[in-house]
Nucleic acid binder design. Structure first.
Lengths: 188, 188
DNA sequence: GATTCTTTATGATCTGGATCATATGTTTTC
DNA sequence: GAAAACATATGATCCAGATCATAAAGAATC
């Protein structure tokens, strides 16, 4: 595993912000000032269309970054709203830009981090395209998605938890998965 | 719109490769030598698990890049198989690495390109999570997805074309979309 | 220009997953 | 330690989208 590229930044580059549900971190069209990492809680990125309808663009959870592209843009392209209380670390855009220019380890690390995310999102999109619940779950287990609760897995792959449990049982009946304990499954 | 960062590379960095269906561009565990852009045709990235099952990680179409992360890795993490005849441009890893270090316009452009892709994939994943066909299609039209055929739109958002057409009609009946022609729909 | 192929479009039927309902076991809260 | 909340798990029923079938229109090929 690779170290966090943001550790190359000056300590002053990172500022922790506490947030309550409903707090707005930034608004669309505001001048960009930084990117963020969620420490705890949840932040939803969304955009409001001309008709007033809200389009959700991302839900950033604990450990996840968001607004990376703001480094390259004058203004934010959406709103960031706290949807579960917690805290975020704001990483100052100025420091990111300067460090990118003068510290190649940071520059490379940041780019690598984005490239790996691209990989992961592409794979996830392919997985979501698998029509059958059973096959999708098997692929998800193979891809290492079952690292928390089964209900979280279900949500993550767009299934109800009932469908998820049933398919897990079906896969065990088929000998394609092994139930090693309550909520725990392994590949044979 | 931003220019292609790869235009900063020396001309010798890019090599066009013709491919037939079934051709292998690289194999998992092979030493990395470059990343690719699809000129025409289709390339599928896949990984074979211990059980012999194949997991599709990405389908790269015309204009799309793949194997960006190979720049940061010793070996390819999957196989790249041609699934529709055409050609790809192979971009030499060595040139990417060197240009990244000495040409900040390239470095920044490449990083931006990845950041924008992250944004787009995240938004796509949120869209795929919309349960109802009608709402998913409306969101897709709002997000600009209906830029080709309705059947392509349907596939892209994991719906059958029949469900897609029916939902489009429903949205028109509701006054939430306007049918401006055969296969053409606009927002009110 | 005729033929073939593809896209658009619709109706009927089927089905796999969603929803509803319930129970048990585990974890968290007080 | 008791109560509340949450995760795991299952059965029954429902339903929204998939599948099957068909037709018309438009694009591509010869």
């Amino acid at each position: 595993m690779f170290s966090d590229p943001f550790s190359h930044l000056p300590r002053t580059a990172c500022r922790t912000i506490e947030m309550q549900k409903g707090d707005v971190l930034f608004r669309q069209t505001q001048t960009t000032s930084g990117l963020y990492r969620v420490v705890s809680g949840c932040v939803t990125l969304q955009r409001t269309g001309l008709g007033g309808d809200t389009l959700t663009l991302h839900r950033a959870l604990s450990g996840g970054l968001f607004a990376e592209a703001s480094v390259f843009s004058e203004t934010y392209h959406c709103d960031a709203i706290c949807t579960a209380a917690g805290s975020v670390t704001k990483i100052a855009k100025v420091d990111v830009i300067v460090t990118m220019q003068y510290n190649s380890a940071f520059s490379e690390g940041f780019t690598r981090l984005l490239a790996v995310q691209v990989q992961q999102y592409r794979a996830h999109i392919e997985l979501l395209a698998i029509p059958s619940a059973k096959e999708r779950i098997l692929a998800a287990v193979q891809a290492g998605y079952l690292d928390a609760t089964v209900t979280e897995l279900a949500t993550r792959i767009n299934l109800s938890h009932e469908a998820c449990y049933r398919a897990l049982r079906g896969l065990c009946d088929d000998g394609r998965l092994i139930r090693v304990g309550r909520g725990k499954y392994a590949l044979p």
